[in-house]
């Protein structure tokens, strides 16, 4: 199977619906097929990367812990958009460890390098 650069962009807030989970499922399957996967949390999507969330309090399962497990699938490029974090008043030390901040110009570069981009 040819290896492609795949970029998955998460844009929805963490627990209002489970779009984030279905985006992660997509990343995991590409990872399982040894594709070059990058994950970007963008706009409201950055809320999925907040470390101290307890979905159980609102009767939800913690799908967000899958983000910590992306490395197991060799998905090591996991980014949160710097601008989006600023817009929401969030800082990197509130995020799950291992997530890198990324600037808008670098996001442009990430998109240019991708063969296929999925936005969920």
């Amino acid at each position: 199977m040819p290896v492609k650069n795949i970029l998955i962009i998460h844009t929805q807030s963490s627990l209002n619906d489970l779009q984030g989970k279905e985006a992660l499922d997509l990343s995991l399957i590409f990872g399982a097929y040894e594709q070059e996967v990058s994950v970007l949390f963008y706009q409201d999507g950055v809320t999925q990367t907040l470390a101290k969330q307890t979905p159980e309090l609102i009767d939800q399962k913690d799908y967000l812990s899958t983000i910590k497990a992306l490395g197991i699938y060799d998905i090591d490029h996991v980014f949160a958009c710097d601008n989006s974090l600023n817009d929401l008043g969030l800082s990197q030390n509130e995020l799950i460890a291992g997530i890198e901040k990324i600037s808008l110009p670098d996001i442009q570069q990430l998109k240019s390098n991708a063969d296929h981009i999925f936005v969920i």
Binding site: M1, P2, V3, K4, I6, D25, L26, I29, F30, A32, Y33, Q35, H116, F118, V119, I120
Partner: peptide
């Protein structure tokens, strides 16, 4: 399933989402 979708993605020139 997503596995078949992933395979098709690697063979496609363009994948387009409609949402």
């Amino acid at each position: 399933g997503l596995a078949e979708f992933a395979e098709l993605t690697t063979q496609a020139d363009k994948v387009i989402q409609f949402k």
